[in-house]
Design a protein around this nucleic acid. Structure first.
Lengths: 217, 217
DNA sequence: ACCTGAACACCGTTCAAGT
DNA sequence: ACCTGAACACCGTTCAAGT
């Protein structure tokens, strides 16, 4: 923050700490992608040399884990008093929303796993709701695995796809050149390019919820 | 190969080319993971300096794309004469098998996208089968998106999970310490740790196939 | 207690030089 | 035509030195 005191401007850097470092890392990743995140750039963002970060954080991996935890903290937990179908639907959509807002979190999860505190809190809550709904432990396991896969899968496709990116144009050229070899891909390319991943995800979520429901009871 | 000619051993290196480079890269990634793959190590594997690789390949990205293509080439294409449910099931399982055998391909797909020749051939074949089964273009799009998400999601979880890894022990300690905070996670941890991703995947695949079938006709 | 500069062992990639 | 060594601009991380 800066205070304007008379004619001089006194620059008062907030003291460096773990929280500020991870916040800045999230901001940088949101802006430029996780690949662009380096200790040197992160230091520069915080007005400090890269080496100073090591006073507050063991290494880069701790920062990455902190970023994952930060995102999971922002996903609202499902309400156990709701019907399980509502809880699962609401929570799935909320999770997808965060994965969309922070696309880098998907690849980070793959690199690092997701056993931070916030993701365990989240997982525990969802598992509790499924068990309370009457699913056996095996069924709960199946349901979790399937819901997680569907969610991660869509998030994955959303962040990996270049169907809806700039290089789509180059791809379109490529496809029309190879139209006779890939007629079905060419026919569906517009749908793939313009698709709303959010509603696509919701569509699949309903199929899964129905399928799980049928196996319950 | 080495020929033993009398008292001297003549070492005849096969000439370097794109195919040999990508083959060696796949081998290295299978053994040590994609993170360990560097131009210098790949060169060493081929008995050559890293810089030689650039005579046969534009850059590292071309190698990575080639590795993805290599894996997709090994997935058997579904037979259009089969019932679509059989085709989808068989192909999904075959794809999962390859993603399991080459876990690095999932993160590579996320980094690089998957619009190589082999993956377009694969995608085109699956889309054709869905359309021939009577799905509209919109429904085919939904179905593809959902099947791809489910498959990538399971592959993702399989390669990201440390539930079934060595560090599971450390996690178990952590969980039992925090057992009162995460009772549902602790209760299901054994199931998560010992689960067979293959059969988990198959379980979800059946739910999806049934769900799609219900929306057909 | 916190920050820094120099250094180390790695990257991908370029380029002039070798054969 | 293919391979090489030296070099460049980057990494994450260590460590002794500064305040």
């Amino acid at each position: 923050m800066t205070y304007d005191v008379g004619m001089t401007v006194i620059e008062t850097r907030a003291p460096l700490n773990r929280e500020r470092i991870i916040g800045a890392a999230v901001k940088l990743a949101d802006q430029h992608g996780a690949d662009e995140l380096s200790m040197r750039k992160l230091g520069a963002e915080l007005g400090v040399e890269a080496m100073s970060l090591y006073n507050h954080v063991a290494n880069k991996d701790e920062i990455l884990d902190g970023m994952i935890d930060h995102v999971f903290t922002t996903i609202p937990l499902p309400d156990p008093k709701e019907d399980w179908r509502v809880s699962v639907r609401t929570t799935g959509l909320a999770a997808m929303e965060q994965f969309t807002a922070h696309p880098w979190v998907v690849s980070l999860l793959m690199q690092r796993g997701n056993f931070g505190n916030a993701s365990l809190v989240f997982m525990n809550q969802v598992l509790g709701i499924l068990r309370a709904a009457g699913f056996s432990d095996e069924e709960t396991h199946h349901a979790w695995q399937m819901l997680a896969s569907h969610t991660m899968g869509y998030a994955f496709q959303q962040s990996s796809g270049s169907w809806h990116e700039k290089d789509w144009n180059g791809l379109e050229d490529q496809l029309s050149r190879l139209g006779d070899r890939f007629p079905h891909v060419v026919a569906l390319a517009p749908l793939l390019a313009e698709c709303e991943f959010g509603s696509e995800y919701a569509f699949g979520l309903e199929i899964i919820i129905s399928g799980l429901e049928a196996r319950l009871g």
